[in-house]
Amino acid sequence: MTILPWEASRKRAFIIGLAPALLVLGAITLLPTLALIVVSFTPLSLTDPINTFHFNNPLGNYRQLWADTRFLNSVSVQLKLSLSSVALQLVVGLGVALLLNARQAILSAVRAVFLIPMVLPPIVVALIWKIMYTPEVSPLHRMLENVGLPVESLITNPDMALWAISFAETWQWFPFTMLMVLAALQMMPDDPLEAARIDGANRWQIFKYIVFPYIRPALVIAGLFRLIDSFKAFPLIYVLTNGGPGTVTEVTNFYGFIQAFNFSYWGYASAIAVLMLAGAFLLSWLISRWGGHHDDE
């Protein structure tokens, strides 16, 4: 006979299984977050750590951020990059998914190959596109030259640099939206499609009125995931433009990086990081409300 009732001993066993992970997770996420928030209330700078670690002006960094044009620029750049890139990923991913959503066996091989851009180390993606965007070595530039349409380097062009990065990011991540849409398409029941065909709808109408409403939730979730991820974009910018020309491609993440590890203004960089974290939290909360994996049953 067990000492504890079976139900209770079972629950205890589960707690023992869960506790170590929660402790570790707490130590490596909650504590650093706490430290981050604390430091963001100080003007901590590594050039003079002792004297700059005080709380005389806790909201000083935040007030300064509000007036910092370079920061505000980084936010606008971030928004431009994220929104354009995610929109492109959704459109391209949707298109490719529709194209590849058929039974021919060879298409499943194509679908598998399309996974590659997504799983490549981001640094390799950055290298690939560094090559593509450097006129001296790029086959694309050379081809255009041979055809008589020489194009100058995109990544040193203030007007085109952000678009170049957006394009590279779309190349890297469209397979993600493609996978999400394909999964939704494959779960779609056949009956409404057949009924529509019998009713005489053409392909565009079928798409607009039947297919699209069904896959829209998948698109929304994919879009949210990609949006959050886009805030982390680093290697592309680091390798392709290093935030330039000027600050044209300096996204918030990059600006924080510069503040922390070029200027060693840790207090200030922490404030930037706190704001980014808040944004990630908000978007995660939205995802969990609009259809995360694990609804509490």
């Binding site: 981050l36 680093f234 990081a273 978007l283």
Partner: peptide, 11 residues
């Protein structure tokens, strides 16, 4: 989902 920079500074 958290941006790495939020953890790199404290770490």
């Amino acid at each position: 989902m958290a941006p790495p920079i939020a953890f790199t500074i404290p770490f």
